[in-house]
Design a protein around this nucleic acid. Structure first.
Length: 259
DNA sequence: ATGGTAGGTATCCTA
């Protein structure tokens, strides 16, 4: 089973890229973030024509998450969750479902804007409540995959210039500790099971030719539970769509599981 | 320290 995550930064704009990439990469399950679409406008029919079923939790203009599954993957999306318990939040940032025997939790983690900003406090509170939700999920569903745009670079290898970036937003110690608190539940950063080096990024700012100069961060992660660790056969970042015309600022990340 | 670009919506907010 190939599982992917991609922050598409507007599904309306990125549909041609998504369908092209689905045809080339043939993932079984895909988690999308920043769809920026109300549910009534989700392109169900176009994705069905591309061979994928979908569940989604969206809103106009901002945020929005979706899960896609290949039509030939057996079973339906089950036990769908769109809200974190104990967090009354209108922002559509989480979508969990069971599909093909795997529990998949798609996250669009709060950006936070800047350390000390009120959005930063919201980010840390969101992460703390997410951790509690995931602690319960991993008990209920051992075959757990938590993936998405985490808006946190786990460590300095995941930053193009860690000295310049310092402890700014996406790299501050409290954010990294919040992420570690989540991985300490028994979730492994699948990319790091296969690649220990730096210079592997999943997001590059649109400005200043950042992609061309590989000035990026690795903030899109696929975490897998202990029960799936031995099943992982590969993990990758596919930079191809980032080179296409009018790209998302993020590129897809994938993991292959022998299940 | 600032501002650079992109998307959606409305001429600003978010990233």
């Amino acid at each position: 089973m190939k599982i992917a995550s991609w922050n598409v930064n507007s599904l309306k704009v990125r549909m041609p890229h998504l369908t092209e990439w689905l045809a080339e990469a043939r993932p079984d399950v895909v988690a999308l973030q920043e769809t920026k679409l109300e549910d009534a406008k989700f392109p169900v029919d176009e994705l069905a024509a591309a061979g994928y079923r979908a569940v989604f939790s969206g809103q106009k203009t901002y945020n929005g998450v979706a899960l896609l599954a290949r039509a030939d993957l057996k079973g339906e999306f089950e036990d769908v969750v769109t809200d974190i318990p104990k967090l009354d939040d209108p922002q559509r940032r989480i979508l969990a479902a069971t599909i093909g025997g795997v529990r998949v939790v798609d996250l669009y983690v709060v950006n936070g804007k800047a350390v000390g900003d009120e959005k930063y406090a919201y980010k840390l509170d969101w992460l703390a409540k997410m951790r509690e939700f995931l602690a319960a999920e991993i008990e209920r569903y051992p075959q757990l995959v938590v993936l998405g745009d985490f808006n946190i670079a786990p460590d300095d290898r995941d930053v193009y210039d860690p000295v310049a970036w310092g402890e700014d937003i996406l790299c501050s110690p409290p954010e990294r500790e919040a992420l570690k608190h989540i991985t300490d539940l028994g979730l492994h950063d699948s990319f790091r099971l296969f690649e220990a080096g730096g210079e592997h990024f999943s997001w590059w700012d649109y400005r200043q030719g950042a992609f061309r100069r590989n000035m990026g961060l690795r903030i899109d992660l696929i975490l897998i539970g202990e029960a799936l660790k031995s099943a992982a056969t590969a993990a990758a970042i596919d930079r191809t769509p980032r080179r296409w015309e009018r790209p998302s600022d993020h590129t897809p990340v994938t993991v292959d599981l022998d299940i």
